[in-house]
């Protein structure tokens, strides 16, 4: 299933790994900049412009 958000195509299963020095959820710290940059770098999409930079759309899993 493919979905368009504000004209940006998002596919289920897209995922990024973020290494952060912040102790909190990276979606809720520093304006989610680390997550936004990771999606930009890996998929060349702007999740902020797509309006999906939220736990309503993204699952956060702590590794390690």
């Amino acid at each position: 299933m493919r979905t368009q958000f504000n004209g940006i195509r998002i596919e289920p299963g897209m995922s990024v790994e973020v290494v952060t020095l912040n102790y909190g959820n990276p979606l809720l710290t520093n304006g989610a900049q680390e997550v936004i940059s990771a999606f930009k770098r890996i998929y060349d999409i702007d999740i902020k412009r797509a309006g999906i930079c939220s736990q309503a759309y993204l699952d956060v899993e702590k590794l390690g």
Partner: peptide, 14 residues
């Protein structure tokens, strides 16, 4: 209340 996103002063919460 679960905070979903923060775009100050806007907060999205479940």
């Amino acid at each position: 209340v679960q905070v979903l996103s923060v775009d100050w002063p806007h907060v999205e919460a479940k």
